[in-house]
């Protein structure tokens, strides 16, 4: 196995780990606003790790350029989309969950 494949495997592994952590967080966190943290943050690092890992095994510069374009698009749109969702929820009057709510129940 060439060293580039090893590097790719490590990057893909880490990316999948963070991606899975985001999914589990989306399930486990108590309210909408906390779920934003899990979903919005892990996505940006997971995609960078996986697409960056694929860079090492890309056969020519055209493929590398496409990977870079996808990474840049996702890096800029992911926080923007997260913020758009949050703002819509806020305007709709969704109240954040706090520790006190849990104690009342």
């Amino acid at each position: 196995m060439e060293w580039t494949h090893t590097v790719t495997a490590v990057f893909l592994g880490l990316g999948c780990l963070f991606s899975l952590a985001g999914s589990v967080g989306l399930l486990r966190f108590p309210d909408f606003y906390s779920r934003l943290h899990a979903a919005g943050k892990t996505d940006s690092l997971a995609q960078m790790l996986i697409l960056g890992g694929l860079l090492f095994v890309s056969p020519d510069w055209g493929v590398s350029a496409r990977l870079a374009i996808i990474a840049v698009i996702l890096f800029f749109t992911a926080p923007t989309a997260t913020h758009a969702i949050t703002k819509a929820a806020r305007l709709d009057g969704l109240e954040p969950w706090t520790k006190e709510d849990a104690n009342h129940e």
């Binding site: 990316g15 991606s19 985001g22 999914s23 989306l26 909408f32 779920r35 934003l36 979903a39 996505d43 997971a46 995609q47 996986i50 697409l51 694929l54 095994v57 990977l67 996808i70 996702l74 992911a78 989309a81 997260t82 969702i85 819509a88 929820a89 709709d92 969704l94």
Partner: peptide, 26 residues
């Protein structure tokens, strides 16, 4: 439970799909 949770989930799903398509290609 709210519509925003669903939108958030589908947005995260979109990012995953992009990566999935790229991986499938390789």
């Amino acid at each position: 439970p709210t519509a925003y949770d669903r939108i958030l989930a589908m947005n995260a799903m979109g990012t995953k799909t992009v990566i999935l398509v790229a991986l499938l290609g390789f």
